[in-house]
Simulated assay, not measured.
Amino acid sequence: MNSPTPEHIFDIELLSIKERELRQLALMCLKESDAKVKAHKVTALRTAWLEGQLSLDNVQAIDAPASIPGRPQKPELVPPLDVKRRAMNTHEGRASLIHALAHIEFNAINLALDAVWRFTDMPEAYYVDWLQVAQEEAYHFSLLANHLETMGFHYGDFSAHNSLWELAEKTQSDVLARMALVPRTMEARGLDATPALRAKLAQAKDFAAAEILDIILRDEIGHVAIGNRWFGFLCQMRQLDPIVCFAKLAEQYRAPQLRAPFNVSARLAAGFTAEELHAMKIN
């Protein structure tokens, strides 16, 4: 995957002091429609934060623009059941799987950026955590998009669905609901699905893709742990029982039903308690 030309990457040094605010810049990245440029911008944004070039305003609300998330014209977004399934024993079938995973990671970049800019009055560590998630999701996307290109395809060559972002829209008014249902439900499903996908790719002798999934699973455990941490923080702050609260939110927002098989060890490593998994009927 070729790097974007320099003029496409915002230069922190050229921004005024007022413009060097983390949440505003996260929104700028979210609005970016070029997938490659978005990934590079997010990496630049986290680097600038770590180098102390940015400030954080966690009090002022930002008006939500209509143009989010920025996304390229392709892939075509269709209902989940309309995404064409291809046999894994074909080159195109394996490419379609890599494409689907790249699309998940692209959406995950947007979800993390949205968590940064949208919600006010959270501790600084919350914004730092989700900026880290955004940068790691950008890395995952780049790995998968690069690998897809070695197979003779590009991100956008296959259709995709938009379920992840739809749940983000449903939970846009409450950070508690967002923490409960995006990292702890949608992203946690990735912990369950990744081992089987990795095995299929390894069986097809696509060892490079299998190694990418090893990286993704390692990092996603950390991302789900971040969701668990902030969900627990918010439940404690609002004096809510986490297990009861999660069940009510899952019902209220019609979260996807959890389906076996489950990666119990990864879920425990990501901070779910045995009691929570029992309540979710995960064993």
Results as ranks from 00 to 15, higher is better:
M186C: 13
M1V: 13
A279K: 01
C29A: 11
E13V: 08
K84Q: 14
L258V: 11
A193V: 13
N89G: 03
V175Q: 13
L30E: 15
N263S: 09
T43K: 12
L181V: 06
A87G: 07
H147M: 05
D114K: 02
E169S: 11
A61H: 09
L97N: 04
Q24Y: 13
W230F: 07
N146S: 15
T171D: 07
N228R: 12
L217D: 08
L45R: 02
F262N: 04
G232R: 09
V78Y: 01
E166C: 11
I68Q: 08
E251Q: 12
M179E: 15
E21F: 02
H278G: 07
I243A: 12
E275V: 05
K205I: 10
F153M: 05
A64F: 07
E137K: 00
I17R: 14
H8T: 14
N2P: 12
A255R: 02
A115L: 05
A160S: 14
V116K: 01
E166D: 14
A48F: 03
A250Y: 10
F153Q: 08
W117D: 02
F10D: 01
L167V: 14
K200V: 11
W130I: 01
F246P: 03
R184M: 10
T5G: 10
A260T: 04
E137C: 00
I98G: 10
A115G: 05
V175R: 11
R85E: 14
N228I: 13
L14K: 14
K205G: 05
F262G: 02
S55I: 04
F207D: 15
L77V: 12
D63W: 07
L77T: 06
F106C: 01
